[in-house]
């Protein structure tokens, strides 16, 4: 995983509540077995009409190309656990999503893949959404100091310290977990014997 540190760039506003992962990446793109190449399908059903022709949407707007931060309404990423939603957002070019709240699984998946979910109060998010109307407005998100700056707006956000550390260093969670091998083995030795085993 690539380390996350300072994210500085343009924003795209998406002032909708409860954007579910079915919208972020529709199911017809989930039959692929790769982890990359989902960016072209981001918000597909909102970006294309029934015949597959592009409709007015930020993903086609040259002025929005290169934006790094998506700013959305509450409960962003609710619904299906598909991590493809995170991969599609990253593959399009976003490095962070700012919203008043996130679906729990989406937030976890973001941490796993190095996409930074930034939770800010709804009023602050609304100010960013207004500022993001101008595609040239730049926002700076600093994970180390847990701050978001945009013009005269400055806000701080919470993040679990261990997640923050892992993101800053770009560490692989499995590698970290395997350092606890002794604890895992000890746990396995004390599990009740009645628990089911699928294969002998």
């Amino acid at each position: 995983m690539r380390p996350v540190n300072v994210i500085q760039g343009a924003m795209v506003p998406l002032p909708r509540a409860d954007v579910d992962t079915d919208q972020i990446i529709p199911k017809q793109f989930l039959t692929r077995i790769e982890r990359t190449g989902y960016g072209a399908f981001l918000f597909w059903n909102w970006a294309y009409d029934d015949d597959g022709n592009p409709v007015e949407f930020f993903t086609h707007d040259p002025a929005r190309r290169g934006a790094k931060v998506l700013v959305a309404g509450p409960n962003f990423g609710c619904g299906s656990s598909r991590e493809h939603a995170v991969w599609a957002i990253q593959d399009w070019g976003f490095e962070a999503v700012v919203a008043p709240s996130f679906g729990d699984i989406f937030r976890n998946n973001s941490y796993q893949s190095g996409l930074l979910p930034v939770e800010l109060p709804e009023e602050t998010v609304n100010r960013l959404i207004e500022a993001a109307a101008d595609p040239n407005t730049i926002v700076t998100i600093d994970l180390e100091t847990q701050t978001v700056r945009c013009g005269d707006l400055e806000a701080s956000f919470d993040i679990d310290p261990s997640v923050k550390d892992r993101l800053l260093k770009g560490l692989d969670a499995i590698g970290l977990t395997l350092e606890h091998e002794d604890a895992i083995e000890a746990y396995e030795a004390r599990r009740p014997e009645w628990l089911p085993r699928s294969v002998a």
């Binding site: 982890r35 656990s81 598909r82 991590e83 493809h84 995170v86 699984i105 976890n108 998946n109 796993q112 893949s113 969670a173 499995i174 977990t177 395997l178 895992i184």
Partner: peptide, 11 residues
């Protein structure tokens, strides 16, 4: 998610 699936498979 899928990265956690990998984590559970491995650990």
């Amino acid at each position: 998610g899928t990265t956690e699936v990998e984590h559970v498979l491995a650990t």
